[in-house]
């Protein structure tokens, strides 16, 4: 039996779909999203899913409460937990960007070096601080928990660092991208010790998921 911490929300549906393609489960993804249950067992498949908040998945895995987890690269980098990263699942694809109001004087990131400080609103204070420091920008990081796009509109910040999938939310709120920071996908992570203790089971799951991911890439190209 493998215990997998999975994030509630859109990624869950996409992940269950991928697991179905890999022949790992027969669970219906959409229904799980509606469900209020926190633990879902698929005895036949030998899987137990823990429905957790996306930000908490690395914690469940680091402490060994779950053998495996599904987490976005953004969350993994921000939380810095010691977990093994086994596979890029290619789902939950988006970009982390830095954006400023369309009418801002800042046309590229280098302009921000002239500001003391460049005030940035973000859900990712660690990533933002490291990234801006390495760009030589004196930044003031304003840590928010959501709707980050609001901050520059009301003068709380000069810009934002956040995720975007299509860029629509940015556009609708009059924001313009000045830097691409990293591309984000959902990763399969494992507890380093449990990965060894249950290595046969986990390797098998990884192999099947790897094939399913490769099959998707093949049909796309």
């Amino acid at each position: 039996m493998l215990t997998i911490a999975v994030p509630k929300g859109r990624v869950l549906t996409a992940a269950v779909e991928l697991f179905r393609e890999a022949g790992l489960t027969a669970l219906p993804g959409e229904e799980l999203e509606e469900s209020r249950r926190l633990v879902i067992e698929d005895e036949e498949a030998g899987l137990r899913l823990l429905l957790a908040k996306p930000w908490d998945v690395p914690t469940y895995v680091e402490y060994g409460a779950a053998d495996l987890g599904l987490a976005g690269k953004d969350v993994l980098l921000e939380r810095g937990k010691a977990v093994a990263e086994l596979l890029d699942l290619g789902i939950g694809r988006c970009r982390m960007i830095c954006a400023v109001p369309a009418d801002s004087n800042i046309t590229n990131l280098a302009d921000a070096r002239l500001l003391f400080p460049f005030r940035v609103a973000t859900k990712y204070p660690q990533i933002a601080a490291t990234f801006l420091e390495r760009q030589g920008i004196a930044a003031e990081i304003i840590n928010l928990h959501g709707s980050v796009e609001l901050a520059p509109l009301v003068g709380l910040a000069d810009g934002i660092i956040d995720l975007t999938e299509t860029g629509r939310t940015l556009q609708e709120n009059g924001l313009r991208i000045v830097a691409d920071i990293l591309s984000v996908t959902t990763r399969l992570v494992a507890n380093a010790v449990l990965h060894k203790v249950k290595q046969d089971e986990i390797d098998q799951l990884v192999n099947r998921l790897e094939k399913a991911v490769a099959a998707r890439v093949a049909t796309q190209s």
Partner: peptide
């Protein structure tokens, strides 16, 4: 490094 961005290693 991740996606071309240099980040301080958590490790």
């Amino acid at each position: 490094e991740c996606g071309g961005v240099v980040l301080t290693g958590a490790g």
